[in-house]
């Protein structure tokens, strides 16, 4: 005889299939389309190729971070260190990106490697010490910020090579390079999550860690993997940001982690773990970008924009809850 508790699981169960197949993101996709149409109707400046390109370019950094944190949240964790990792990796990249010093590959490898290491550190502490991810990454958030300030001696690092700056400002066939990075990473992350055993294991770990372990899943390795992925993607975001502002800024990226988490949640990733999709997260990130762009175009001050954004995050989660009940 099943009891009440299972009825809750059942609800989660019905939405799983939809989520995994990206159908659960219909609600948010619909909201996204409605908002785009509304903006297109209220200002002629919204629906232009140049404006849309600007939006996606601006969204790219947040989306890269959000993809990483989606992996983490699906396993039932959280990563608050992302913003600081953007700063550290950006500073590291800038240190090796001055013109006529090192080949371009050096700042790239060092920045991604720094992100990977910091993410690995998060994963290691979380799996070995059993301290909750919230606390551990809160710690590394501060550590990361400190490292960024130490490495840069508290000053922005500028005078970067043109080839490096291409990462943030260049175009291929008229498409800004950050958008190309965004698309490649999106496809790779989607495939990893949906088509590989590691993706499946992430859902299992977040859905019921004990059962995942008892099923022979290497739970600790999966956790290490998601934090390393998250860190590496933060490194990539750090590269794009540094190249875009052509400066290694130790103070960059403050609060980025919250925007990334917001994008994942708006996109339907459950903070209790076990469900979520990259498509949802991408739409979540785009929605945030479109709204702030739209409010800019409508001359709404940034103060109000923050209020609107908060309301949308809460609204998205409520909608998600209603969806689950209906399912």
């Amino acid at each position: 005889m099943k009891q009440l508790v299972t009825s809750l699981y059942n609800q989660a169960g019905t939405s799983y299939k939809k989520r995994v197949q990206g159908i659960g993101t219909y609600g948010i996709l619909l909201a996204f389309i409605v908002i785009c149409v509304a903006l297109a109707l209220s200002t002629p400046r919204f629906l232009t190729v140049s404006n849309l390109t600007i939006i996606v370019t601006q969204v790219s950094i947040n989306a890269l971070l959000a993809f990483g944190v989606t992996f983490v949240i699906i396993t039932g964790g959280i990563d608050l260190s992302l913003g600081s990792l953007v700063a550290v990796t950006g500073v590291v990249a800038a240190m090796f990106a001055h013109p006529d010093t090192f080949p371009l590959i050096v700042p790239l490898v060092f920045a991604l490697g720094a992100g990977l290491l910091m993410g690995g550190f998060n994963g290691l502490v979380i799996t070995k010490s059993k301290v909750p991810p919230f606390i551990v990454t809160l710690g590394t958030m501060t550590i990361g910020r400190g490292l960024a300030l130490i490495l840069s001696k508290g000053r922005p690092i500028s005078n970067l090579s043109d080839s490096f700056n291409f990462i943030g400002g260049g175009k291929i066939l008229g498409i800004p390079f950050p958008i190309i990075i965004l698309l490649i990473v999106f496809v790779a992350c989607s495939l990893l999550l949906r088509k590989t055993i590691w993706g499946r294991y992430m859902y299992a770990v977040g859905g019921n860690e004990q059962a995942a372990r008892a099923s022979g899943i290497p739970v600790e390795k999966i956790k290490m993997l998601v934090y390393m992925l998250s860190g590496t993607l933060a490194g990539l975001a750090g590269l794009v940001l540094t190249a875009r502002i052509t400066t290694g800024q130790p103070n960059a990226g403050q609060g980025f982690e919250l925007d990334a988490i917001a994008a994942a949640i708006i996109g339907g990733t459950s903070t209790s773990g076990g469900s979520g999709s990259m498509t949802g997260t991408l739409i979540g990130a785009l929605l945030i970008g479109v709204i702030s762009n739209g409010l800019d175009l409508l001359n709404v001050t940034s103060y109000y924009q923050q209020v609107v954004m908060g309301v949308i995050i809460i609204g998205a989660v409520i909608l998600d809850g209603l969806n689950r009940k209906a399912a």
């Binding site: 699981y9 169960g13 499946r200 859902y203 299992a204 859905g207 019921n208 059962a211 995942a212 099923s215």
Partner: peptide, 24 residues
Amino acid sequence: KALGCIPGMSVQHTLTLSSLARFA
């Protein structure tokens, strides 16, 4: 409940969870 099933997982995904590497 605690050790066998993962809430939210489908019948298919539960079945193959311990032998997934074989299908990959």
